[in-house]
């Protein structure tokens, strides 16, 4: 099975918001992990990246907010734009880029602070300390993360006293506190039980009304449930990218078919 070209549906009837273009390539030192990617991600929809471990989907996700910059020896070729602006624009501070992009991680990682302080962290570091503004952001974010009713009476308790699912939703609330345009989710449910997973998935369904969401997941059912479009990666290449129904019900590519039907490898 060697197909060098990406299978994509011919009609892309949307305005692309995030564009991975110009044959995006990515290396860790001398090891190339992403090959010639071109991908348009629609605004205010959920796009899922699926593929076996090591296929580069997380690397691509972390390229979008330049989280990979923390690693030494990375090289890229090609470009990624968000709303038409290149993330590699030298005039663009990486910090201000990250303020436009919220990120939720695989393992919920609240700060060892109070629930309140977790959410206003991104405001405080930007020097926004006005109490009324912070209060408003906390309520808006927690409501957005469907957590307000559960925690409104204990905002000043430690975030670490919450349950795992609550902590992950707190992390989502923290990610949307700054009103980003894009929400990146790196396997957000892999550490959660099914109930919490369901809540987070419901939340994703709600959040896509306001945010452009990109989610990496190992759980294909999850990708099928929450996403509007799905991209299948294998060995650093984008194999197939289409609306989710097509990817799961009638994929055009044999590798995709094999992967989604569990016959892979």
């Amino acid at each position: 099975m060697s197909q060098e070209t990406t299978t994509t549906s011919q009609k892309e009837d949307f305005e692309p918001f995030i564009q991975i273009k110009d044959d995006y390539n990515f290396w860790y030192g001398s090891a190339q992990v992403l090959f010639d990617l071109n991908l348009n991600i629609p605004k205010k929809q959920v796009t899922a990246f699926i593929g076996p471990s090591g296929c580069g989907k997380s690397t691509l996700l972390r390229s979008i907010n330049r989280m990979n910059d923390l690693i030494e020896g990375i090289v890229h070729k090609g470009d990624i734009t968000i709303g038409g602006q290149s993330i590699y624009d030298p005039a663009l501070e990486v910090i201000s880029l990250r303020k436009r992009i919220g990120m939720v991680f695989q393992k919920y990682n609240p700060f060892p602070k109070s629930i309140y302080e977790n959410i206003v962290f991104s405001l405080r570091i930007a020097g926004r300390n006005r109490r009324s503004e912070l209060d408003e952001v906390v309520e808006r974010s927690l409501r957005g993360a469907a957590l307000w009713d559960e925690v409104k009476d204990r905002l000043h308790e430690s975030a670490l006293s919450m349950s795992g699912g609550q902590m992950q939703r707190l992390c989502i609330a923290r990610a949307i506190a700054n009103s980003p345009e894009v929400l990146l989710m790196d396997e957000p449910c892999s550490a959660l039980d099914p109930i919490a997973t369901g809540k987070v998935e419901e939340l994703i369904h709600e959040l896509k009304k306001e945010y452009t969401i990109v989610i990496v997941t190992h759980n294909m059912q999850q990708a099928a449930r929450v996403s509007d479009r799905t991209a299948f990666f294998y060995l650093g290449k984008l194999i197939e990218y289409d609306i989710t129904d097509t990817i799961f019900m009638n994929p055009k590519n044999d590798q995709t078919e094999a992967y989604v039907s569990g016959r892979f490898g």
Binding site: Q221, A224, R225, T244, D245, F248, M249
Partner: peptide
Amino acid sequence: AVRYITLRS
């Protein structure tokens, strides 16, 4: 029905 089974398990 087929779509529901496929996508919603």
